[in-house]
């Protein structure tokens, strides 16, 4: 499962990150050494071992479907880089 430079750029794109051309080689080196450390896992037989997602094997608790939050729109919009008329503003998506 050796990776190449194109794989690195593709992974970056999936994460919406950009790797500059002059960073690709170093990024590939780091990535490969981390993956080779991670691949130590593959030497262990885990055939009948179920995955553990939560350390207490807790399942997601649900709360009552009741309104608990107050309308805090103005305060929350103050945090946004750009807003207009009570909405978040982003670059045009559809012409």
């Amino acid at each position: 499962m050796a990776l190449n430079e194109k794989n690195i750029k593709d992974i970056a794109h999936l994460a919406r990150l950009k790797i500059e051309e002059n960073e690709v080689v170093e990024s590939l080196t780091d990535f490969s050494s981390i993956l080779s450390m991670i691949n130590e896992m593959q030497t262990v037989d885990t055939e009948n071992i179920p995955p553990l997602a939560n350390p207490h094997e807790q399942i997601q608790r649900l709360r009552k479907d009741a309104v608990t939050e107050s309308n805090d729109r103005d305060n929350l919009l103050k945090l946004a880089p750009k807003t207009t008329d009570g909405l978040f503003l982003v670059p045009k998506v559809i012409d």
């Binding site: 896992m41 593959q42 262990v44 885990t46 071992i49 179920p50 995955p51 553990l52 997602a53 350390p55």
Partner: peptide
């Protein structure tokens, strides 16, 4: 795989 190993560690 990592989650299975997580169980082994627990």
């Amino acid at each position: 795989k990592a989650q299975r190993i997580r169980r082994l560690i627990k």
